[in-house]
Amino acid sequence: MDAKSDDAARDRALALAARGGDRQAFASLVRRHQARLFNFLLRLLGRREVAMDLTQDTFLKAWSALPDWQPAARFSTWLFQIGRNAAFDVLRRQQRIDFVSYDAGNPADEPGDSAPSPEQQYADRQRLRLLERALAALPAEQREILLLRELEDMSYAELAVTLGINEGTVKSRLARARAAALLHYRDYTGEHRDE
């Protein structure tokens, strides 16, 4: 049994206990998932305080919905489904599908084409900042599917359940997201695109 399956089995046991009213079991679930959920919501929404509130709200909704949770469903997938639904409610209310990276850098800090850094570590940091900017430039739907795939390592079947779409749509949406992220990333880094 791999680590992912072990985690899922542990989550299932805790969720079953929590469903029976065991608050300490639910506390364990919060401790296990709060950082990943917060990280996902922060990168999806771009605002720390909103991500903080939504992380709490997601767990509160999960607690109330636990009687409806099916043990056959992976708890983390179910939790992220609640979280992304809450995040898109916020986006719809705010009428903002565009996004400002929480860590977007000042353009003056960006390295230009002819500004190679002598420090590889510095260059790596800059590269990741540009990648975050490229991620932030994506439509929310593309950003979320990339985050769930690359950061949460969700399979296409899990993505389909979490996003409420079929696997064919997962395949095409993920490909579009990758293509768009690559386009933005290369624009920011000044790399030539080989079309």
């Binding site: 950082a35 990280n39 922060l42 990741l128 990648l131 991620l135 990339l146 690359e150």
Partner: peptide, 13 residues
């Protein structure tokens, strides 16, 4: 791109 996304730092509350 996938490898770089995987290297993004995780931000905790």
């Amino acid at each position: 791109l996938a490898a770089d996304l995987g290297r993004l730092p995780s931000v905790a509350p």
